[in-house]
Design a protein around this nucleic acid. Structure first.
Lengths: 333, 333
DNA sequence: TTGAAAGCGGTACCAG
DNA sequence: CTGGTACCGCTTTCAA
């Protein structure tokens, strides 16, 4: 089923069919009617591959994220999708599962699709990509990783500042023995986030911290908590890399008969919707996901026109959100 | 950057470059080396549109779901993606947000992409699609809606049976005043799910039920609960259309000072991971999402070969899962 | 207002 | 083992 068949049935040329399809230029209304009729009778659907090949453009933007299962990523994705749609763009998404090989695969896939723009919202990185992306001449926005370049914009959250707020608050509550729950992807002292935590703690001599990590899921948070508490360590506060893992931690604590926040305080990060709905509601740090999504779209889809976003690097300062999962140190601890 | 440029640089023909790209037939290793070198030097990435246009195939399967934000859908998606990848397929996903116009748009998009197979996991429907899908000659699997046809397989869950188990259990606990929380998409007595609930309740004369609905989100569940309880109705048990909305209900109840399950029982549906991690853990009904994902892939990707899935309609019987959110009717209620 | 035809970037068949 | 070339289905001049 192709243009030609439609053209034949409507007794016009393929050029004309193409014109009505793109409701371009002036096609005599009676002609147009014939074509439309033929299209419907044949249940014709234009081949999008042929279209973007011939047109040289794609009207599609790609979004690559580490873990769409985590609402943090998904919220950004949703915003991008919505913005894109209103501008007449499609969006294709890819998950890396925090694996940098998968990141490479996904980026190549996007380049192969000749996307009009690419958002990379991941924690992992593969250096060789920067070059590839660079001469693919595709507008790119990185969140959390990468470095600004000709065609790449960078958005980052001042994670360090956010963690400091959490640590300071906990400290002011009297906590001294801390725990940090991460996930596999940010493990190791090389990681910016891990480092931010260690540094924030190191500022205050009286503080002690131990860490554990597992997957970036509810279950992963729980496992990490189990690991953290397994060798007799008894933190009075547990800082989590994000809200999802924090909810996992909450469960493990509950099952051990530890009350939050009476026995142990817990903090999340991101301020996803779930953090308000779990019990107890999480003290957390807000990252403005919608704003991030908007910035990404702005930066991606106006690059062809006048760039509304001047800066190549955008830093966002996260806000502390106080809820019910944190409290003073239990007496005698 | 195209085949020709690579060919020129490697001093071979485009045909040969194509061969090494698809590591097909025998290319002399020294020639291959030259080509590979050229490809890398030029940072060449094949144009996927051209590829699938020329090849006539797409090695891509499409997945359309109502609400990827709900882990129920996402879990199925993940399984499909994983299965697809191991078979060398890509997958493109689309969200309908429960809007049937968006369903139509998405299906057309998938047809336009000439996907090798399409999974439609939605609650909404648009009759005209059945025909379009039919003569697009694309293997299709519908979950929850649609009717089997030549190229379409159907998977459905015996929702009715699942709800009956819930209602019976609640009844055995002594509950008589029930509430049902749905979401916008299943509103109205025409809807299968809504009907299942009404019928299940109608079997037992002593039972009374009122319903409310809002969005299929945490917040939506909360709003619906608020609505349900707003006019003095005091159900002793609230049945929710799924786990996500149930968690929303849990929160509203908590804020009204109602304890679960001592004052009110709550049930979910789907048995997503969150149902174990919320507090209290939800009594729910398990829908085997991974199994569904596998069946979908099996049915989609082997249709070209020998069909491993014979039946055109597959019905799944859901299992009751007892946890902590349900209990006997409070005395005097 | 419409048609003819030259690509877009690959694939695959046919020769050599 | 390699090159030439006819498409794949659509867009887009260029003429008529």
């Amino acid at each position: 089923m192709n243009l030609e068949q439609v053209a034949r049935r409507a007794k016009v040329s393929t050029a004309t069919v193409s014109r009505v399809l793109n409701n371009a230029s002036v096609v005599k209304s009676t002609t147009r009617a014939r074509v439309v009729k033929a299209i419907e009778e044949l249940k014709y659907h234009p081949n999008l591959h042929a279209r973007s090949l011939a047109g040289g453009k794609s009207r599609t933007i790609g979004v690559i994220a580490s873990n769409m299962e985590n609402p943090f990523f998904f919220d950004i994705y949703k915003t991008i999708e919505s913005d894109a749609h209103t501008r007449g763009y499609e969006v294709v998404m890819a998950n890396t599962d925090y694996r940098s090989e998968q990141l490479v695969t996904s980026v190549r896939l996007m380049i192969g699709r000749r996307v009009a723009g690419l958002a990379v919202i991941v924690s992992e990185m593969a250096p060789e990509l920067m070059d590839e992306l660079n001469d693919a001449r595709i507008p790119v926005v990185f969140y959390d990783v990468g470095t600004p370049r000709g065609n790449v914009t960078n958005i980052r959250v001042n994670y360090r500042r956010g963690i400091e707020k959490v640590v300071d608050y906990l400290h002011s509550l009297g906590h001294r023995r801390l725990g940090f729950i991460g996930h596999h992807a940010i493990l190791g002292p090389i990681n910016e986030r891990m480092k931010a935590v260690m540094d924030a703690v190191a500022r205050i001599p009286s503080l002690e911290v131990r860490t554990a990590a597992d997957a970036d899921t509810l279950e992963g948070g729980r496992q990490a908590a189990r690991q953290l508490l397994s060798n007799g360590y008894e933190p009075t506060a547990i800082i989590c890399v994000n809200d999802v893992t924090a909810v996992g931690v909450l469960r493990e604590l509950r099952e051990r008969g530890l009350r939050v926040p009476q026995d142990v305080s817990v903090t999340g990060f991101d301020n996803v919707k779930l953090s308000e709905f779990c019990y107890p509601a999480l003290t957390t740090v807000h990252i403005p996901r919608e704003q991030i999504g908007h910035i990404i779209c702005e930066s991606l889809m106006s690059k062809s026109g006048k760039s509304a976003v001047a800066e190549a690097e955008i830093v966002i300062d996260p806000e502390f959100v106080l809820r019910d999962s944190t409290g003073p140190v239990p007496p005698g601890k």
